[in-house]
Design a protein around this nucleic acid. Structure first.
Lengths: 336, 336
DNA sequence: TTGAAAGCGCTAACAC
DNA sequence: GTGTTAGCGCTTTCAA
């Protein structure tokens, strides 16, 4: 690997000082003669000079890099969030380092440490199942939370969705469609999202004068295997239902599969409502009726918010923005 | 944001020189007394000192960061690759900056430039449809290619799959199952992968004494909409077939959908063979028979290879490793 | 309009 | 065993 061309090289070759080159590179060339300016610029192009961001960061204390911490990019819920964040970041000249925690607190803390060392300007934190606020405070980097709440004071904002209202709307739709016995297969109850969705399910039933009974609620994890297993549990208890609200699309897909194996068809025999609207949801048979979360936008807005406070810096005025994004009921064919 | 604790602070407080602290931080403490060692370590913990990697990198010329350039993390083919790369990288103490190019040469070059500025130690490049070798040479960072060939000389290795052999095996399987008229819906022919897969399809037919005819080959892009559209094209030409080999799973899924709408069932009326084995493939109805690419492993091995040459540095001996990973025919229910 | 010089936080010789 | 010192490549006053 040959040595990088440095500013010094350019300066020497052009017979100017390194400060001059620096100013030109940073567009602080208000008072640099047009002549030298173009001369330097040409030389830079010719030599293929690329400023060393490391050195710059060392003095400016800005790396133009943000961290994105998510549980698992392989989970279909996250790629769009990541993409949204990356698009916004790169639009503003930022790069993003991504980190998969598998929802392990240890990994998460480790990543926060690494990102701190690398002096990222900020972190976007997409939800981890477990409580994990402990260490947010240990580092003084601004953090924006997605889909999760926390009170740590370097959390400068959050991008959320009203899970309770969304679920309530979804389940109400089921009721309007004439479903009478609606079960709920929940994800991990350690997550606030699962709790909120349960609350929404409950409220929808109550407000329509329908009984809310925990025997119709199964709590597990946000995985499709769980959806599959939950159906077996219902069967063992010989519980009957004509619709199931699922904690997310993955669960819904697992449930449909189990149902199909038992000769129970969706939506003919049982209606299924998912949550998230991941890419898969439109590909299944039948395509899923689901509550859409604006995933791309979540990532995008989170990055926007984060970069905003990074650039405003001091002027933070502690606004701690909370952005609540709209969900949308996407009606496809898994409900009648 | 309060100021970072620096090495100097620690040194001063401990009454030792900054060099001592540095050595301890870097485990070069062969000849540092156990006493000072533990004293410093405690102080570091107490003060929450975190080394500034920026400053370190400036002198070591190593950032412990690699770049991952992919077309689109939202395409179900890539998250696993990304995950594999990240897992390996973090295991070796590296972070990864990820970049989505949408297969645009311009974006791609821009990212290479940014990654160069950020002084990443190396880049993993997962295939972009278009030819794009142009600028690999402009920067002297080691590059590992995934699923794509190139001769640029800073390409230090590649992780590939034998697309031709894999396709040939897949199509041969179709033939063995008794399918007689096998069509092929290809992805973008601008990609080497599509060409190789076509070659494999052709060889399989030839070797089994079956006619190879371009009218049974449709060329498009690697998207599910294309699979859907291709079926309409076949219909317009009133071509009949009893099986379709699809350039990837997305195409297969689109094709199945179109077929289903026409009352043609898979695999009863037509067998479908996909490629990739993305997560979706097992979720569809029927679950897809497909040629599995070891995506996670591709990412993992690429990172491994890259980090290997980064750490060996000079000793590169120009090996330009080529790792060919095995594919596997996953038989599910879209073929009889 | 440009240059000199200090310093960002750290590593790595080389002294002591 | 530990300290001194010279940078790494850049930005940023302050002078000229």
């Amino acid at each position: 690997m040959k040595r990088q061309v440095t500013m010094k090289d350019i300066a020497k070759e052009a017979g100017v000082s390194i400060a001059t080159v620096s100013m030109i590179c940073n567009n602080k060339d208000k008072n640099i003669s047009e002549a030298t300016r173009t001369r330097i610029l040409e030389l830079i192009a010719k030599r293929g000079y690329v400023p060393n961001v490391m050195a710059r960061s060392l003095v400016t204390k800005k790396t133009k890099t943000i961290g994105l911490i998510i549980p698992d990019i392989t989970n279909p819920f996250f790629p769009e969030i990541a993409r949204g964040a990356e698009d916004m970041a790169s639009k503003s000249g930022y790069s993003v380092i991504y980190c998969n925690t598998d929802d392990k607190i240890k990994r998460q803390d480790n990543y926060i440490k690494i990102l701190t060392e690398k002096m990222v300007d900020g972190i976007i934190f997409a939800h981890s199942a477990e409580k994990a606020e402990a260490d947010f405070n240990k580092f003084r980097i601004p953090i924006v939370l997605i889909d999760r709440d926390s009170k740590a004071d370097n959390v400068v904002g959050r991008v959320l969705v009203d899970n309770e209202a969304a679920s309530m709307a979804g389940v109400s739709y089921l009721i309007q469609q004439g479903y009478k016995k609606i079960a709920y297969i929940a994800g991990s109850m350690k997550t606030k999202t699962a709790q909120d969705r349960l609350a929404g399910y409950r409220r929808a039933l109550m407000e329509h004068g329908m009984p809310y009974d925990l025997k119709w609620v199964k709590k597990g994890s946000y995985r499709s295997q769980w959806g599959y297993d939950a159906i077996q549990e219902f069967e063992k208890e010989s519980l009957s239902f004509d619709a199931i609200f699922c904690g997310n699309d993955l669960i819904a897909i697992g449930a449909i599969k189990a149902l199909k194996e038992k000769g129970i068809y969706v939506p003919k025999d049982v209606g299924i409502l998912g949550f998230d609207d991941v890419y898969l949801a439109q590909m299944t048979t039948p395509p899923l009726t689901t509550i859409r979360q604006p995933k791309y936008e979540m990532g995008y807005r989170a990055a926007e918010l984060l970069i905003d406070v990074i650039e405003k810096e001091k002027k933070q005025e502690e606004k701690k923005e909370r952005i609540i994004l709209d969900t949308e009921l996407v009606i496809r064919q898994s409900t009648k």
